[in-house]
Write a protein that binds this DNA or RNA. Structure first.
Length: 276
DNA sequence: GTCGATGTTATCAA
DNA sequence: TTTGATAACATCGA
């Protein structure tokens, strides 16, 4: 669930709530969630203070004092929640950071695909999770975006989902962006016209910004850092609208499979490539 | 009960 | 270079 807009909202929420807070102790209930040694958390974190919270692609980077950082990837169902200590401990709560104010920073993850990792702040640039990421879709300019995409012969949707090509898009916003740009997801990137790639750059920026303004999409169970839901799911134009009329032309939206991902398209607005 | 699907990504084989 | 399958896991709906 959490793609760039959702992760951005979590980051903003955390920024409000944990900067300046100090960690008192850490309890790890499911060691598998922690990359590296889970014992390191309990050993190195007490006494550290949160300095800043950033995002790179879908990765959350939490800076602590004295040279340490905490990386967190939510993958499918991860949640980072900053809550009062008396908030009921929900199912699938795997790690709890007890803060000196008494509040808790809790990591929850139903499917347990996400992870937390301790890293040295000055080594972050070379960290494999970070160094291989493509450009930020909200920062790359139009020319560079077009240049970058059209060098690939791949189908455009799997390319958009490839975090080394562009960092932060997931299934929902890939479908929404392609719909807005009126590009069929099976089109080879190298065969999409410059006009349409330009339009795609604009569409991605629009849809991501709108989603951030709506606090993200709560499609399954996404929630921000204080447990709030997003509302962008009410603005989705194709995602999960199979069988419903296209908002542009009225023809039914169809769901197909692209690169083994469920994919939503309007067959009239997004013309399929001839071959296949 | 069983099957298929679910927003992510790493890895392996073709 | 690109693709497809598989796997990690829990849950929901048909």
């Amino acid at each position: 669930m959490p793609e760039l807009p959702e992760v951005e909202c979590v980051v903003r929420g955390l920024r409000q709530r944990i900067i300046g807070e100090t960690i008192e102790r850490v309890t790890v209930h499911l060691p598998g969630i922690v990359r590296g040694s889970p014992l390191d958390l309990a050993e190195h974190l007490p006494g550290r203070t949160f300095r800043d919270v950033r995002r790179r692609g879908k990765l959350i980077i939490i800076g602590l004092d004295r040279g340490l950082s905490l990386l967190c990837h939510l993958r499918m169902t991860g949640q980072l929640l900053c809550l009062p200590p008396d908030a009921p401990q929900e199912k699938h709560t795997h790690v709890i950071f007890h803060l000196t104010s008494g509040r808790h920073l809790r990591y929850r993850d139903q499917r347990q695909f996400g992870w937390i990792q301790l890293a040295e702040t000055d080594q972050l640039a070379g960290h494999p999770q970070i160094s291989r990421l493509g450009p930020e879709p909200l920062e790359i300019d139009r020319e560079a975006f077009v240049r970058r995409l059209r060098t690939h012969r791949r189908q455009i949707k799997p390319l958009l989902l490839d975090q080394t090509a562009l960092a932060g898009l997931g299934n929902i916003y890939a479908d929404e962006s392609l719909f807005r740009a009126r590009i069929h997801p099976l089109r080879r990137a190298s065969e999409v016209s410059a006009v349409k790639l330009n339009r795609l750059h604009g569409a991605i920026g629009e849809v991501l910004r709108e989603a951030i303004d709506c606090s993200g999409s709560t499609v399954e169970q996404f929630r921000g850092a204080d447990g709030e839901s997003g509302s962008f799911q009410d603005h989705l134009q194709v995602y999960d609208r199979q069988g419903l009329p296209c908002l542009r032309c009225g023809r039914p939206v169809v769901k197909i499979r692209v690169g083994s991902r469920g994919t939503h398209v309007c067959p009239r607005c997004q013309r399929a490539p001839r071959n296949r």
